[in-house]
Simulated assay, not measured.
Amino acid sequence: MRDILGDLEAGRLLSDPDPVRRAQIQMKTPQPKRFYEKASVSPVPEGYAVHLDGKPVRTPGKALLALPTEAAANLVAEEFAAQGETIDPMAMPVLRLANTALDGVATDPQAVLEDVLRFASSDLLCYRADAPQGLVDRQNAQWDPVLDWVRSTLGARFNLAEGVVHVDQPRESIAVLGAHLAQRSEPLRLAAMHLMTSLSGSALLALAVEHGGLDAEEAWKAAHVDEDWQAEQWGQDSEALARRSLRERDFMAAARMLEALKA
Score class of each variant (00 low, 15 high):
180 H>V: 03
14 L>T: 06
261 L>W: 04
80 F>T: 03
77 A>H: 11
213 G>L: 03
109 P>I: 03
207 L>W: 06
124 L>F: 11
199 L>N: 07
181 L>N: 05
195 L>K: 14
44 V>E: 08
191 A>K: 02
12 R>S: 10
95 L>D: 04
81 A>H: 06
182 A>K: 13
195 L>I: 05
216 A>L: 04
25 I>C: 08
160 L>K: 11
233 Q>R: 15
208 A>K: 08
219 A>N: 09
248 E>A: 12
126 C>H: 01
12 R>H: 13
195 L>H: 06
214 L>A: 04
173 S>P: 07
116 V>K: 12
83 Q>A: 04
236 Q>N: 07
213 G>P: 14
150 V>G: 08
53 D>S: 05
185 S>Q: 14
165 V>A: 15
250 D>T: 05
173 S>A: 15
214 L>Q: 12
12 R>M: 13
247 R>E: 15
238 S>H: 06
103 D>Q: 11
13 L>R: 02
42 S>D: 02
257 M>N: 04
101 A>L: 11
34 R>W: 00
218 E>I: 00
7 D>Q: 00
177 L>A: 09
255 A>N: 11
193 M>N: 01
18 D>I: 12
35 F>Y: 04
104 G>C: 13
221 K>G: 07
83 Q>D: 00
42 S>E: 12
93 P>F: 12
126 C>V: 05
262 K>E: 14
138 R>E: 12
134 G>L: 03
57 V>K: 09
257 M>D: 05
223 A>S: 15
199 L>I: 03
166 H>S: 02
14 L>W: 11
159 N>T: 05
9 E>K: 08
118 R>P: 00
185 S>K: 12
179 A>M: 05
262 K>T: 14
260 A>S: 13
50 V>P: 02
166 H>P: 09
59 T>W: 00
22 R>M: 09
64 L>Q: 10
32 P>F: 07
140 N>D: 15
78 E>W: 07
88 D>C: 01
5 L>P: 06
256 R>G: 09
38 K>R: 10
55 K>G: 01
217 E>N: 07
84 G>N: 07
135 L>W: 08
245 S>V: 00
32 P>E: 15
98 A>L: 03
37 E>V: 01
46 E>K: 14
93 P>K: 12
116 V>N: 05
114 E>T: 09
31 Q>N: 10
12 R>N: 11
140 N>M: 13
7 D>C: 02
21 R>E: 10
200 S>P: 00
42 S>T: 01
254 A>L: 09
74 N>K: 13
26 Q>Y: 04
256 R>S: 15
17 P>L: 09
252 M>R: 14
210 E>H: 10
33 K>D: 11
249 R>I: 08
85 E>V: 00
22 R>I: 06
96 R>V: 06
208 A>P: 05
23 A>R: 14
177 L>T: 08
195 L>G: 03
140 N>A: 12
66 A>K: 11
222 A>L: 06
252 M>Y: 12
111 A>Q: 15
190 L>C: 04
47 G>S: 15
148 D>N: 02
12 R>K: 09
221 K>I: 06
180 H>M: 02
136 V>H: 05
58 R>A: 07
84 G>V: 08
6 G>Y: 13
227 E>D: 06
147 L>N: 07
47 G>H: 12
129 A>L: 04
129 A>N: 01
244 R>A: 10
241 L>K: 14
21 R>D: 08
209 V>G: 11
72 A>P: 08
204 L>E: 00
154 L>T: 10
125 L>V: 08
